[in-house]
Amino acid sequence: MSVDAATIRRIARLARIDLPEADVPAIEGEINAILGFVAELDEVDVRGIAPMTSVMPMGLAMREDVVSDGEKAAAVTKNAPQSEDGYFLVPKVVE
């Protein structure tokens, strides 16, 4: 399988990365080189194999459904590019 320039632009938009038009051909070549490399997997028969969902065979731990952390708005917003009164500020989203 290989991708074309239009697919690269669409995927970059899905990934929310602005891609200058001049960079598209190079990225397209690199992505196709990687896809060519992974095409080797086509020869593996995986019929009847369940996909890996947990690296070590174990169940997820349960705990009491209680608040164990919080009330740290100042620490949480400390690294924000813009914040006010314990909120993150962003450009207006809803008109």
């Binding site: 399988m1 992974v38 997997l41 593996v44 995986v46 194999i49 369940a50 996909p51 890996m52 969902t53």
Partner: peptide, 13 residues
């Protein structure tokens, strides 16, 4: 399915 799921199956192998 063609990529991610298949790769996770290959991990099992």
């Amino acid at each position: 399915d063609a990529y991610y799921l298949k790769a996770q199956k290959i991990r099992i192998l």
